[in-house]
């Protein structure tokens, strides 16, 4: 029986020490769709996203409760290896963070540590093509990744994530440090990528969420400053006919 959800959460809460940053999130993220997480800053979008691939493990004092299910396995279960989780759930960060290596090596490194045994040249080309970067870099593969523009660096980061063939790609405001043209290119790229991957993207850009995503989760903090998903629905519905008054205020720009 194939599950058409890529990942599910069940009353997932995330705490920084005693402070609960994200509370009781239950959502089912559909496969090969783009799910956007929106909400005012500080409402726990990044915290929730980083919980999906256990990046929060690196924050001292941060812990999760509830369930996060991938193929029926709780990713916060005791027997789960977070390294394996991250091999299945890749991540693209807000600020492009290529490795201080050559463009080629940026792609090859991740594949190699993930045990890739095939033809590396082909994988590099294929990944760069999928990230719509190949034509711009094919003649300078051995140059430092830092010689690229910010938008190119971000696409390189997407390419290196594709190279490890994850199931899900998480993106935390991947275009917020980029100019409008680069932003559009990333959005186009996401439409291509969703044919093969499930994408969850955090964005504070309303138009971007409306344009690029299939589903939208609206987050908001409660009176104790704990963030929660107050509404989760198809993107069109969220932007045209939301159920929650707070969502309507937020997406129409009347918030705060």
């Amino acid at each position: 029986m194939e599950n058409h959800y890529a990942i599910e959460t069940n009353e997932l809460s995330i705490h920084y020490g005693n402070f609960t940053a994200v509370k009781d999130v239950s959502m089912k993220v559909e496969r090969q769709k783009i799910t956007a997480i929106i909400g005012p800053s500080g409402c726990g979008k990044s915290t929730l996203l980083r919980a999906f691939n256990r990046m929060n493990d690196f924050v001292p004092g941060c812990h999760a409760s509830g369930e996060l299910l991938l193929q029926g396995q709780n990713l916060y279960g005791k027997e789960i290896d977070p390294v394996e989780v991250r091999r299945k759930i890749g991540m693209v960060f807000q600020k492009p963070n290529p490795f201080p290596k050559s463009i080629y090596e940026n792609i090859a490194w991740g594949a190699r540590i993930n045990g890739f045994k095939g033809k590396m040249d082909e994988l590099v080309e294929q990944s760069l093509r999928s990230a719509a970067l190949w034509d711009e870099v094919k003649d300078k593969l051995q140059e430092s990744a830092y010689a690229l523009s910010g938008g190119q660096q971000q696409r390189l980061c997407i390419a290196r994530t594709i190279a490890i063939q994850p199931e899900i790609i998480l993106m935390d405001e991947p275009a917020s440090a980029l100019d409008p043209i680069s932003t559009l290119r990333i959005e186009e790229l996401m439409q291509e990528l969703k044919k093969n991957y499930t994408i969850i993207i955090v964005t504070h850009n309303m138009q971007q969420a409306a344009r690029a995503s299939d589903y939208t989760a609206m987050m908001m903090i409660d009176e104790r400053r704990a963030g929660g998903v107050i509404e989760f629905d198809g993107t069109t519905r969220i932007f045209t006919n939301p159920k929650d008054k707070r969502t309507e205020d937020y997406v129409t720009g009347r918030f705060g």
Binding site: N53, M55, F58, V83, E84, R86, R87, G90, M91, F93, K95, N97, P98, F99, P100, K101, W109, G110, I113, N114, C157, R160, T161, I164
Partner: peptide
């Protein structure tokens, strides 16, 4: 070495050792 580099490596499914020796050390 910026935290962002380590996070980038971990997000690729790198172990702590791989991250320390192959990413942080050369940087």
């Amino acid at each position: 070495v910026p935290r962002a580099l380590r996070e980038g490596a971990y997000a690729m499914g790198a172990t702590k050792l791989e991250t320390s020796i192959q990413i942080v050390l050369p940087a």
